[in-house]
């Protein structure tokens, strides 16, 4: 049903183009994002994977204007959500975008609902904020969407306070809230990390089914490759604020090109035979205040050559499949150039 790769023809839900962003600190700027480009087509489910601190969340928070004011600086690039440039918007314009065009599902369902307000009011307030709906209409919409999230007795749940629900139930409520105003794009920021493994699959299916049915685009942010592989049409791999590899989920996972992606996949227990040692990526994530010269992965990369240490590679390749590595997917003349240096 879903096609992957070429996205321009169907219109973009999210188009981040060469976004660079830094956090100024007293001891220097932290270059959190460097030339990040992410495209999400309408009705496409896209995954962003990478380890903690690689800029996954920062990318999406910057796109929706949720980073703390005055604490960051966009040094280049653009963000368009359904054609609207969000970087130029003021706070009240952003409020209209958030919830209506794009909404977010958070990692911590235990803390993402206000403990002093009943579930029903929290849901209907969001609906009435964005839709021309009376309270009775809003309650009906809320009830329907809760039922759609496989919550039995939605009417009763709406009269409960968040502490009366389990983590899985709260996450369903939050997903319902995210979908309640039919946004075109949903950002799911590690939505199952805090949940029991048995609940994870259910929650992921709920998001996927609803998104497929309503034609909603979803960005899945995760450090869990297994989760992403089941759900996403396309995958972005981030490392230290840069996109290192991009492509259809199957191709990226079956034939990873970038050494970082390869190393990442070798770390997964389910991809290694029993009793075999798991591999760890040697070295540590670079300090983004003083990033290494050239490719950021080069200090930990086994295949690094001189060129990798002097110039940073750009994403290259056909549109559906791109890798940022001097040793992959580029013409022989660059490899020769590399050996010459």
């Amino acid at each position: 049903m879903m096609t992957t790769g070429i996205v321009e023809s169907r219109g973009q839900a999210l188009a981040i183009h060469n976004l660079s962003l830094e956090f100024p600190t007293f001891s220097g700027a932290i270059k959190a994002l460097d030339n990040v480009s992410i495209n999400v087509a309408k009705a496409e489910i896209v995954g962003i994977v990478g380890e903690s601190g690689c800029g996954k969340s920062v990318t999406t928070m910057a796109a929706t204007g949720l980073l703390p004011k005055g604490r960051y600086r966009v040094t280049g690039g653009s963000v368009r959500i359904f054609g609207h440039s969000t970087l130029a918007m003021d706070e009240s314009q952003l409020q209209d975008v958030r919830g209506k065009m794009v909404s977010t599902i958070f990692q911590e369902p235990m803390n993402a609902l206000n403990p002093t307000i009943r579930i029903g009011k929290q849901l209907t307030d969001v609906i009435m904020r964005h839709e021309e709906a009376s309270l009775t209409d809003a309650r009906r919409i809320a009830r329907d969407i809760l039922a759609d999230m496989l919550i039995g007795e939605p009417e009763r749940v709406m009269n409960l306070y968040p502490f009366e629900l389990s983590g899985g139930m709260r996450q369903r409520v939050l997903i319902a809230m995210a979908f309640s105003c039919n946004p075109g794009l949903i950002i799911a920021d590690e939505p199952t990390t805090a949940l029991d493994v048995t609940v994870q699959a259910v929650i992921l299916r709920l998001i996927q089914n609803r998104a497929r049915r309503t034609g909603t685009s979803v960005i899945f942010i995760s450090h869990n490759v297994a989760v992403v592989s089941q759900l996403c049409d396309r995958l972005y791999v981030m490392y230290a604020g840069r996109i290192v590899e991009q492509g259809a989920t199957r191709t990226v996972l079956d034939a990873p090109q970038h050494p970082y992606t390869q190393a990442l996949l070798r770390c997964l227990p389910e991809r290694v035979a029993p009793k075999q040692e798991l591999e760890a990526i040697t070295g540590a994530v670079p300090n983004l205040m003083h990033p290494p010269a050239g490719c950021y992965f080069q200090p930990r990369c086994k295949e690094a050559v001189d060129l990798c240490r002097s110039r940073s590679p750009q994403l290259e390749g056909a549109d559906g499949r791109q890798v940022a590595c001097w040793r992959r997917g580029v013409g022989p003349e660059i490899s020769e150039q590399g050996s010459r240096q």
Binding site: Q95, K100, F106, N111
Partner: peptide
């Protein structure tokens, strides 16, 4: 708190 941030992602105004 996360619920305040979450509320902002759903478009809540500072007054709300």
């Amino acid at each position: 708190q996360v619920f305040v941030k979450a509320s902002r992602t759903f478009g809540a105004s500072p007054f709300y």
